[in-house]
Every structure is written in structure tokens, then in C-alpha cells.
Nucleic acid binder design. Sequence first.
DNA 1: CAATTGCTTCGGCCGATGCCGAACCATCCA
DNA 2: TGGATGGTTCGGCATCGGCCGAAGCAATTG
Lengths: 238, 238
Amino acid sequence: MSSIASGNTIAEVGGLMGDAARANMLMALMGGQALTAGELARVARITPQTASGHLAKMIEGRLLAVEKQGRHRYYRLASGEVAHAMQALMALAADGHRRHHPLGPRDAALRLARTCYDHMAGRLAVAIADALSAQDCMVLSDGAAVLTQKGRAVLDSVGLPMDGTSARRPLCRTCLDWSERRPRLAGRLGAALLARALDLGWIVRTPGNRALTLTGQGEEGFRRAFSLPVDWRAGPSP
Amino acid sequence: MSSIASGNTIAEVGGLMGDAARANMLMALMGGQALTAGELARVARITPQTASGHLAKMIEGRLLAVEKQGRHRYYRLASGEVAHAMQALMALAADGHRRHHPLGPRDAALRLARTCYDHMAGRLAVAIADALSAQDCMVLSDGAAVLTQKGRAVLDSVGLPMDGTSARRPLCRTCLDWSERRPRLAGRLGAALLARALDLGWIVRTPGNRALTLTGQGEEGFRRAFSLPVDWRAGPSP
DNA sequence: CAATTGCTTCGGCCGATGCCGAACCATCCA
DNA sequence: TGGATGGTTCGGCATCGGCCGAAGCAATTG
């Protein structure tokens, strides 16, 4: 029903995100991994049949994409723009929040390194951005970033050739997630870096959630590749 | 009702934007000017009392701010973050749209120069960004921008001292509005430039809509200040 | 002091939508 | 082939929220 799946209006998109159950599902998918319908129903605390309805609506509205695999159906965000829109909404929602930071044991892992849609977040990601910036590999200015010649060389040495300046996707963007509000690498470079680090076995995903575990190789690799200070885990230094 | 006006949730924010009438009002306010309740009712095609309810909700949700002046009440977007969120939603809504571009007579003025929340948009804004970029006043990369030393000098000469690199607000961002999808100056610099240009009388606002009229002085002033090519009105050259 | 205009509050109507129980497909496994 | 499990569709219920008419303030105007 409705239109032939052509163009949404702002109100339609907003309405889709403007439901608690759907928002919860979208938040769960912000981790970047595809989840099954059942998992999404559980995270939203609704019955599977209700979840199914919501998912269908979000597919119709082009917020999600599906991939069926066996008897499972894996849902994921349809595009980076969806993630971006969610972030923008989160920024508004967080306004007066001053959320409780229980800082539990599992929280500590998330705080160190986690995924945020398609790139890394947490202390590690911030430390990398800081180090690159401090070494003139990249110029950070008001939340935007530009890579220098030297920066390209460094990234190239990690196996990340940043050749084309083509895409109009930002290299770096401040991403208002819960945890330190400091710039980190997102965008095209951020996505490439996450993929490469997973590839090298420097970090591994945790099955259930968005947390990333830093391996021994990773500890060493990151420190050497980006010349991280020894105390990078301590958080914002200045 | 609800909480004591503290923290919204994502769903609440989305829900506020997810209504046709409210979305229309927000869109009207994207021009950057404050509008009265009556004007907003008219643009949303609803009765004043219905509009009043919507406006109260958006105030409560911290999407809008009011200022009463005499017997009028002027509503405006509460912050740049609200405008940013709307842009993000527009990007999703526009997806399949491929909107009709009627290109009427009034449309031509909008296409040349208009406001977009707190900065300029249209051919003029794009031409300025292009010129600054071509003269190494600023480095554009993937939609982000960084000002060079030379750029600071140029802006300083127009009366725009860009001293503190302080704020974490992007200098430039691609802004997916209807019309050319090319980078232009937004963010802190964009806002300052708009204010300065209005101040100098280079451009003047059109009362009813978002269009900006380029004055004779402006024609001359912009060309000299940013060394615009003579044919900048022609649009994207390369 | 009326009269007018801009805006809000109140009350009731009604359509839209989220929710679940039950039944129905599809896939995997023994 | 029968039974589990994951997922969807259907039908009905209940609630929520947008809408407007009528009435009530507030400020400006004569």
C-alpha cells in the first residue's frame, strides 16, 4: 500500500524512527552487524509478529535491507545515511540526558573499543585520531579532517591506500555517542580502518554486542602503526 | 505530563519530526528566520489551534525556541543540531524522490542565493567555496574543509577574523538541499559569512521566503573579496 | 473602554496504528 | 516424513494523537 516504494517524505522517515520499538531496533543495528528478526524482537521487547510488522515498514521505507539466509532473515541498516540520521537524532535526544554512566564491567570493554555502524569508536579510536593529528598526518578543524601527504604515507604503510579523493563522504566526523565527545575517524577512512584492523586480527568482534576486543597483535600493531603514546588507554590527556 | 522537560529519547525526537504538519513547520523554519505561530499554521495548512498544540510539543521537545514580541510569538529552530537532524532526514527522504524542478521565476532567485538555516546556499555560496578552494585558501576533502593560513588572511580582510579553532563545529559540510549537490560553506564560518554579508548590505533577505537578493554592492564586493570568476553565475564549470 | 487581532486552552470526535493470539509458510533436522 | 524452529500474515482490540469548534487570555488600536 501507500506509494509504489518511490519517495519518502521527511515526515514518513521521521515517523518510522519515531517509535520506541523501531528506534530500539535501529539502535541495535548501529553496531554495524546484521541481526535476525528474532534478535531484533528481543531487543525491542516485543513479540516476533509485532516486530515483523515493524521490520516490513522499515524495509518499505528504505531504512533497512534484508538478506535471507537459510531460515533466518538478517536485517541491517540500508545505508550509512540511515546511521547518520540516527546519530543526528541521538544528538538531539542526548541534550538534557546527562545519562547515568554505570561503568559496569561490560561497559568498560565498550568504552575501550566498539563499533559504531561501520567504523570504530571508543578510547582506541580517539587515541588514533589524536596521534595522527599530533604528527601532522591529518589536520583536524572543527570536527572536520583533511589528510596530509604524510598521513597518506602512514596509512599506506598499514595497507590502506587512500588514493581517490573522489567520494564526497567525510573523512572524519564528530560522532556524538555516549562516551567521550571527541573527534575520531569515521567516514570512508574510518570504515576502511575498521575493516583492515579486523582483517589483520588486531581486533575481533564480540558476538552479542558492539564491543571490540583488542588482541595482543593489535596492541602492538596499533601502537607501532600510529605511534600511539604508551598511556593511550588513560583517555584524553590534555 | 511526561518528564520534567529533561531528556528526550530518540523515539520522541523522531516522533516529533514524524508528523506531516510538524515537518512542514520545521522545513519552513530551515530558512533561519523566526516565524509567527499564524504563519506556521498557514504553511502547514492547519488551523491555528492545532498548530499551537504542535508548537507546544516541539518546544517541550526542545526542537524549537520561542520569543514573544508584542502579541506575536516568534518561533525558531532551537539549535543548529535541529537543522542538522532535519538535513539528515531530508537526505533519506530525497532518496527516490528525483523531485520535479519546475524552475519557475521565483525559483531562479532561490537557486542563485538563499539561506539554509544560518548560512548561505545556492550558486553564490558554491562559487565562493569553489574560489576559496581554487586559491588554496581552504582544502576541501570529502565534504570536509580546513582553512589555510592564506584563507584566514582573506577572510580577515572581509572582516571575518577566524581566530579560535576552538569550537568543534564543522567549517564546511555538504548540505543536501534541493539544487546543486556541491560543497559550500556551512558551519561556523558559513554562519559568520552570512551575518557579515547581511551587515555589509551585500545581500538582503526577502521577507516572505528564504531567497536572498544580491545588491549592487554585493555583486562587486563578493567578486573582489573572493576573486570570483566573472561567469560565476553560470554554475558548476568543470 | 470597547473592538480587533494573535494565540492558547478545553472538549469531543475519529481515524491511524501498535499490540498480541492464532494460524500459516518455510527451513532445517532426525 | 514428522516435528521442531524462525518468520510472516490475519483479525480484533485498545489506545493514542491529530483535528477542529468554541471559548478564553493578552496585547494593540480606535
